[in-house]
Write a protein that binds this DNA or RNA. Structure first.
Lengths: 348, 348
DNA sequence: TTGTATGCGTTATCAA
DNA sequence: TTGATAACGCATACAA
């Protein structure tokens, strides 16, 4: 970038300070005459202010960073869109950073965003609780907030003094499990998320609570985030024998379960009901019963919080409502005996 | 960020220059004794160098930017992953920027990445050709390359002096169309991508060429990127009457076509074959015939080009191989008459 | 081997 | 209203 403000100033025949005043939009203190001269020079030279230098001296940068757990997870894509749609009108650029659910990488991005003096940072997703970096992250987050950067956590994750905007993952699973129970199912299996991951724990707890409240025996299978994880869990379920219903930690793994079961000849929902969580776009496409987590709104609200921090400081915590979305992969439990007994003229 | 190098220097009792030498890893010119003192001060103070200031003075920044057409499009998510997996070992941070297929936004990110002195910029995806910003973008790209930033285009898009890594979209569709022709289909419809978009044009051309070479009459429907677009195209197809096969511009809209047709009672592939392009992850999940575009490799190669620019300058253009992936949504054309004639003992 | 001084491109604080 | 000049945090050419 060879062309700087000094070039503009000299071409316009004014001082650097004056040139700066007009391009930086500082409180009017320059005559329209000189302003025009400067603007003309800017145009002729094709000058654009250097964001780096500007951020260095103003200690602020019109960007907001979104640190996501995984770029390839549609869950986060929706959150990003929510953030961006809100940031765009403010003329802020959104930077998305893929931490790959790795706390070291997350730290690096956090540090970067901090050094860049970004207005705000949105940390999206849950976290692994069994790693040593946890404390270091909290430290960086603390420093960043002290520095004046507005941080909000979007997901099942809490930092001291940082507002959290999330859905109630425990309750979401509680409701979904209950929905299946009300459908008449008793043997309801849960394919867990990755171990030692906050969202996993919360969701599993919701399932366990619902089963417990209904005096039903819980049945869990290990699992993780992805389609392939769902597939391998399904294979284990198949070899154990089918329950009446299966809930997976999230939609992606639920789809893995769904496909594997179907390929094994299992009819869904006739033989077994299957449900996921999140309501990613493909859940609708595949007619998968799930729990809608308002990802877009989560992102939009986080951005809203950042842009209205001063006038309207965000509360410690906001819980956005979830909603069980019944679709075609779940059905009322129908025992063979029941069928026969209900068919006219054929008493059991 | 209150704590800077001067703090470190004074605490260690050395000059700013000396402190800088040890933290910046410059060619050894400092005794191990003082080095140790500085390092100790760094530790005690929790000092971290400021990336902004460093970039400003060194005119370089260990980040690489990926500008994508859409964050919610899984196509780009794969590309990002390819880039990141390559950049990570180099200790470079990857920044993903969502241009939303909007050239103004793209320009803003381009400018930002340029001012940030990023090592490289990867521009992913095609572009709209009917907008006035085209020239301005070329100008920014030119300036950025002059400035020493390594830019590579990943997709159906070409800039003067900028290497392009892409698949042959025209040929991909040519091959896919041919595949359907070899399956015995003659009435093959094409659901187009958005008008005036480079990738749309290329893919459509491939379809048209294949149809022309086979002396078949082309039949096109307007469409766009998304699932919903596929749905509305499918409705129009339904009202026109079903062809023998349908190719959609990409997988996402193909899935829209698929679902809409199925909901209307159409059997796939028995009544009509359906195929998409890209081979996004859900294409496999849905058993959709498609053309595999090596998205991950596209991203990885782009990153490779950037990191090996000096020793091994990238060629003007690299075309990565595509591959028709036959799956369950396409089948050989079977006329009723044909069936009968092939069933043993029942000549037509 | 270490320190001094200058510059990177801006904004901001003072005088003028 | 405008202009010097000092920061911002760091790297480096040059001097010691």
């Amino acid at each position: 970038m060879p062309i700087s403000l000094v070039d503009v100033a000299s071409l316009a025949g004014v001082s650097l300070a004056t040139a700066s005043r007009v391009v930086s939009g500082s409180p009017y203190k320059v005559s329209s005459k000189t302003r025009e001269r400067v603007l003309k020079a800017v145009g002729e030279l094709g000058y654009t202010p250097n964001a780096l230098a500007r951020a260095l001296v103003t200690d602020s940068n019109p960007i907001i960073g979104v640190i996501v757990g995984s770029v390839t997870d549609p869950y986060f894509a929706e959150i990003c869109r929510g953030v961006e749609d809100f940031a765009r009108p403010h003329e802020f650029l959104t930077i998305v950073c893929n931490a790959d659910r790795n706390l070291s990488i997350e730290m690096a991005y956090l540090q970067m965003l901090r050094e860049y003096k970004s207005l705000g940072i949105i940390i999206a997703g849950g976290m692994y609780t069994n790693t040593p970096e946890t404390e270091a992250i909290r430290e960086i987050v603390r420093k960043a907030t002290e520095q004046g950067i507005q941080i909000v956590s979007v997901g099942d994750r809490f930092f001291e003094g940082v507002p959290t905007i999330t859905a109630d993952h425990r309750c979401g699973l509680y409701d979904l499990t209950n929905y299946l129970i009300h459908l008449g199912h008793k043997e309801i299996a849960f394919v867990e998320g990755p171990p030692d991951f906050t969202t996993s724990t919360s969701r599993k707890q919701g399932y366990l609570d619902a089963m417990d409240d209904a005096n039903l025996e819980p049945l869990t299978y290990s699992g993780s985030f992805d389609y392939q994880d769902g597939r391998s869990s399904a294979l284990r379920i198949l070899s154990d024998g089918l329950p009446e219903a299966i809930i997976a930690f999230n939609d992606d793994s639920a789809v893995g379960v769904l496909n594997t079961l179907r390929q094994a000849g299992v009819k869904i929902p006739q033989d077994v009901s299957v449900a996921g969580v999140d309501d990613i776009r493909y859940a609708e496409v595949l007619d998968l019963t799930t729990v809608n987590v308002p990802m877009y709104q989560l992102g939009a609200m986080a951005a809203h919080a950042i842009f209205n921090w001063e006038e309207n400081p965000p509360p410690k915590q906001v819980i956005l409502p979830h909603r069980v979305v019944p679709r075609g992969t779940t059905a009322r439990r129908v025992k063979l005996a029941t069928i026969v007994s209900t068919v006219e003229g054929y008493p059991s």
